[in-house]
Design a binder for these strands. Structure first.
Length: 336
DNA sequence: CAGGAGTA
DNA sequence: TACTCCTGG
């Protein structure tokens, strides 16, 4: 779910226009896939599937979003998670339980005929499995979009790519990459527009957070921000019961982090978690390469193999790899 | 989520 | 043009 420190970011989440987002976007692949798989569903929660029952929601999401980003002169590179640290095991098993409950609730809601509850439960049942990861990577290859597998957490790798100048910013809905030291985080990198959230219409548009501005504004170090996160809970440790972001901020500012842990959870050693955020396993070798899209490869995969509509695919391909016969449109692949 | 059709 | 609604696989 990511670290719940949103209240601390009030005033630092700046709306940003597409013009300012030109550059290299290091996209948290797991986060993006999860968004697609959980949201791209029919009203009763059924995901898009091909005739063999294989889920295709994520392929639709990647295809159309890629076209959109390239049109905005944004170069995406997808960062996949590698092996999770042992510290994450509890989070992983908790997520599995939530998914299984979601699956059961979905079936229940369908039997009751409660479509809205079915949709919500189906979202919670979403799972990024091997088939989804593999097919997403094949599609990215056909689209000429680079991807890499991080040694460990993708968000940590994204931060390293920014630090070394390979990426301009990190893209995720979660705030973890800030803890890993990503200097720029972009959320809602989607076609802006209105969405229904909890029944209400709300306008969603891209927003940008600068870590240095955040730390300066809060007068704190990244180490302090990490300690706050540890108190409220991260993917790598349980939080302290009854402590939210505001109390955690106060505790850390007053230098009572150790004291509070000694009192509330004496068995817990925060140092491995601190260490993981401050120097996670990452690679410094990777250099992404963007290639022109392979229209025939995309067609073969999506139309022949997964049953996408030829018309829809042709429309997208025309946007990202205009055919020579097309009239007067500017070529978007010219800067590859 | 994103695109497209339908509507005003 | 702007906005709502529906569908995609």
């Amino acid at each position: 779910m990511g670290v719940p420190i949103r209240p601390l970011l009030e005033g630092y989440r700046h709306p940003v226009g597409w013009e300012e987002l030109k550059g290299v976007a290091a996209i948290d692949a797991h986060n993006a896939l999860y968004q697609f798989i959980s949201i791209i569903r029919q009203p009763d929660g059924t995901p898009l599937k091909d005739t063999e029952g294989r889920i295709t929601s994520h392929l639709s999401g990647i295809l159309f979003r890629t076209a959109h980003l390239l049109e905005k002169e944004i170069s995406p590179v997808y960062i996949y998670d590698g092996s999770p640290p042992d510290l994450k095991q509890k989070t992983i098993s908790e997520r599995r339980e939530v998914r299984e409950a979601g699956q059961a609730n979905w079936e229940d809601a369908l039997r009751r005929g409660d479509t809205e509850a079915a949709y919500r439960a189906a979202m919670a049942s979403s799972r990024i499995d091997h088939a989804i990861i593999g097919s997403s990577q094949r599609l990215l290859d056909a689209l000429g979009i680079p991807w890499m597998q991080a040694p460990s957490e993708g968000e940590a790798q994204s931060a390293a790519l920014i630090e070394s100048g390979v990426a301009t910013y990190s893209v995720s809905q979660d705030y973890d990459s800030l803890l890993f030291g990503a200097s720029v985080l972009v959320r809602n990198l989607t076609v802006s527009g209105k969405r229904r959230i909890r029944g209400k219409q709300q306008t969603i548009s891209p927003e940008r957070i600068y870590l240095p501005e955040l730390l300066d504004g809060l007068s704190m170090t990244r180490e302090m921000l990490i300690d706050i996160a540890i108190l409220v809970g991260t993917d790598f440790n349980d939080g302290i019961y009854g402590i939210g972001p505001k109390k955690a901020e106060k505790i850390v500012r007053e230098g009572r982090f150790d004291e509070v842990l000694r009192e509330k959870d004496p068995a817990f050693d925060p140092d491995p978690v601190r260490e993981f955020f401050l120097s996670p396993p990452v690679t410094r070798e990777y250099r992404p390469e963007w290639r022109p899209p392979d229209p025939e490869g995309v067609r073969e995969m999506l139309i022949e193999e997964y049953g996408f509509s030829a018309d829809r695919i042709s429309g997208v391909l025309e946007r990202i790899a205009p055919s020579r016969s097309s009239s007067g449109q500017k070529r978007l692949d010219q800067w590859f």
